[in-house]
């Protein structure tokens, strides 16, 4: 960030002399400050988990979910500005509904990600708008099986076996790489996801957090829903146990 203060970072519609768009890079900073979100594409489904930092004890437990539902079979989690996350979820819902309207069939995740990516990218072109301060993990089981994507503030998107965004992404990625995701069942992935979120949470620096987790697979009858409470509690118990053993 040596070029800060040179005037090339005031607008998303201005390149710096070495071809960068600073506003987009700043948007990535907003993502990096956020609680971690991870996604696991496994053998028979997808699991998405979020470390939701609770900034006040006055908040109702379970409120302000960071994992949202786009369609029966599609869900997403965002890291970054909460309000931007809601906006992107609404857009994704509209796109999914419009696909259904035109093609009378459930949209493949790739199509939705493609359209969301285009939408996000449009906010990197004009001086009158700011880019989205979020990275979005989208997961689904569609006609081609389990699918997992991440859309970044620049509008680029990649498909993944395992994805991590937000503060603890580096460690989370390392942990994800150790897993044999293609052989993992969704039920096993729930335990792993919980363990990773607990592992990357920095107890010393951070406030309280809630583990938020949703999944889709045969066990959820092919719809994207929150992981059942008993299973979530069990996964959290194991995660805390693993953390103590590790330390």
């Amino acid at each position: 960030m040596t070029s800060i203060g040179t005037g090339y970072d005031l607008s998303a519609s201005t390149y710096s002399p070495d071809g960068r768009i600073f506003q987009v890079e700043y948007a990535n900073k907003a993502v990096e400050n956020s609680g971690t979100a991870i996604g696991l594409r496994c053998k028979d489904g997808v699991v998405i988990a979020v470390e939701k930092l609770v900034h006040s004890k006055l908040l109702v437990p379970g409120a302000n979910r960071r994992i949202q539902t786009v369609d029966r079979h599609i869900g997403l989690a965002t890291a970054g500005l909460m309000a931007d996350g809601r906006h992107i979820a609404n857009r994704a819902r509209d796109e999914a509904a419009s696909f259904r309207d035109i093609y009378r069939s459930p949209p493949p995740l790739k199509t939705i990600v493609d359209r969301v990516g285009l939408f996000v990218q449009a906010f990197t072109l004009y001086s009158s708008v700011r880019p989205f301060g979020i990275s979005t993990i989208l997961g689904a089981v569609d006609k081609d099986g389990p699918a997992l994507y991440v859309v970044e503030p620049s509008g680029v998107f990649y498909g993944y076996h395992g994805a991590a965004v937000g503060k603890g992404r580096q460690l989370a990625k390392t942990e994800l790489e150790k897993l044999k995701l293609a052989e993992l069942s969704t039920r096993e992935a729930v335990t792993e996801a919980a363990r990773i979120i607990y592992a990357v949470h920095e107890d010393s620096k951070e406030k309280e957090f809630e583990l938020e987790m949703s999944w889709i697979g045969n066990e959820s009858k092919g719809v994207f829903v929150p992981v059942p409470e008993d299973l979530l509690a069990e996964a959290e118990r194991k995660a805390k146990e693993a953390l103590e053993n590790f330390e």
Partner: peptide, 15 residues
């Protein structure tokens, strides 16, 4: 049928 299905998806996604 398709209109009602759209409505049910909309209701489902609001969670």
């Amino acid at each position: 049928q398709s209109m009602l299905d759209d409505k049910m998806v909309e209701e489902f996604t609001s969670q």
